[in-house]
């Protein structure tokens, strides 16, 4: 792992392969919480439901007191190193949707990381469970191109409607324009 690495698709494939190899070799039983693999990151509980388990899990967590969905964002892991801090049994994909839930009663937070494959960037919406995800889901769609199935208004939110591309994807250029200084003959 070094920061000098340039992100490319090959790396991501490599990363996937290596994780798969690891999985095949050891096949440890994943630790489960609420029926899905769980991991921990800096003392914070992270659940890793599959796309199919996702809505049901959020729904049942809501019954358990996680009333508020505080945050929903996307991550594009293109070019990330092999160590994704995923528990065994969870295959890494290019995209992740990260959902933060908050329980007021026991003052705890729980985080969900859902793997979204690049080939089919779609996920079921949480809108009917937590209406609060309307804006964040639109933002994830706008920035990452992940569609939320069943969302009532799946349109761009930050960028203009006619914008091409999804800016927060790792393969989307930052769009830096070379700074030109007055009087300079060439762009620097």
């Amino acid at each position: 792992m070094s920061d000098a690495e340039t992100p490319s698709i090959d790396d991501a494939e490599l990363a996937e392969e290596s994780v798969e190899e690891v999985l095949e070799e050891e096949l440890p039983q994943p630790e489960l919480l609420h029926g899905v693999p769980v991991s921990e990151s800096r003392g914070q509980v992270v659940l890793h439901p599959s796309r199919d388990e996702y809505v049901a899990l959020v729904s049942s967590l809501r019954e358990l007191g996680y009333w508020m969905c505080v945050d929903l964002c996307g991550v594009d892991y293109l070019g990330y190193g092999p160590n994704r801090n995923l528990p065994a049994g969870v295959a890494p994909e290019r995209f992740e949707v990260v959902v933060g839930l908050l329980s007021h009663s026991d003052r705890s937070r729980i985080r969900l990381r859902v793997q979204i494959p690049e080939s089919d960037p779609e996920l079921a919406t949480l809108f009917l469970i937590h209406p609060s995800v309307e804006n964040p889901e639109r933002e994830v769609f706008d920035m990452f191109g992940i569609r939320f199935d069943g969302h009532p208004d799946m349109t761009r939110i930050l960028m203009p409607d006619e914008w091409v591309g999804h800016p927060l994807r790792k393969d989307y250029e930052l769009g830096r324009i070379p700074v030109q200084f007055k009087g300079a003959s060439t762009a620097r």
Binding site: M1, S2, D3, V70, D71, V75, Y80, G81, N85, V98
Partner: peptide, 30 residues
Amino acid sequence: PEGEVYVAVESPRGELGCYIVSDGSSKPFR
């Protein structure tokens, strides 16, 4: 170090959270 973390504080407008994914480099991955 690699990892991801979500931290929240109470800003004047409500819960202000920050989610950072680090890939071990000197810049946040996300």
